[in-house]
């Protein structure tokens, strides 16, 4: 992805992310989250990860956030927080923590050099390539993930069920 486009998209993503975290109303936060996810999907396409990008839209934005909004509407959690944030000391600590994260990563980046591959293989990032890796080297995690989903379904149903 070219630099100017990156910078533009980055600015938008940050704006959206901040909205998620800062806005008092949960519904607005959810919508901002959708925007963030879409923009990230664009990033993925720019990084030759086409399947992942599509999955991001379908699964994340299309299912997970929809589920969020569903629950918000069901339980009528639309009211804004009277004071959306916790006390000042905690905010200070949290912000400090955040800055620390960024600083750490920055330091790490300065110290380390990531090896770059000479060129990308043919069909990098498309379904066939992903599938090839998934069903050979990562077969066991794949199967375990299916079990995980089963467990999650059972758990969710059990937890949310109306007790007689």
């Amino acid at each position: 992805m070219s630099a100017p486009i990156f910078l533009l998209l980055a600015a938008l993503v940050l704006a959206a992310a901040l909205t998620v975290v800062v806005h008092p109303s949960p519904v607005y936060s959810a919508c901002a989250l959708v925007v963030t996810l879409f923009l990230l999907s664009v990033f993925f396409i720019g990084l030759d990860a086409q399947l992942v990008a599509v999955l991001q839209v379908i699964v994340y934005a299309g299912a997970i956030v929809v589920l969020f909004l569903f629950v918000i509407m069901l339980l009528n959690l639309t009211q804004t927080e009277p004071r959306p944030t916790a006390g000042a000391p905690l905010v200070a600590v949290a912000v400090g923590g955040g800055i620390a994260v960024v600083a750490l990563v920055a330091t790490a980046l300065r110290r380390l050099t990531v090896p770059t591959a000479p060129g990308l293989p043919e069909g990098f990032g498309d379904t066939a390539a992903l599938a090839r890796r998934l069903f050979t080297a990562y077969l066991l995690p794949f199967e375990l993930t299916s079990v995980l989903l089963l467990v999650a379904i059972v758990g969710a149903v059990g937890l949310a069920k109306r007790r007689p």
Binding site: A86, L90, V93, A94, G97, A100, L104, R111
Partner: peptide, 20 residues
């Protein structure tokens, strides 16, 4: 829960800081 999450964060930062 958020206090607990804070301790997670602090712990993770310390660990990472050590490695970096």
């Amino acid at each position: 829960v958020q206090h607990y999450a804070l301790s997670f964060l602090i712990g993770a930062l310390l660990l990472l800081g050590y490695y970096v």
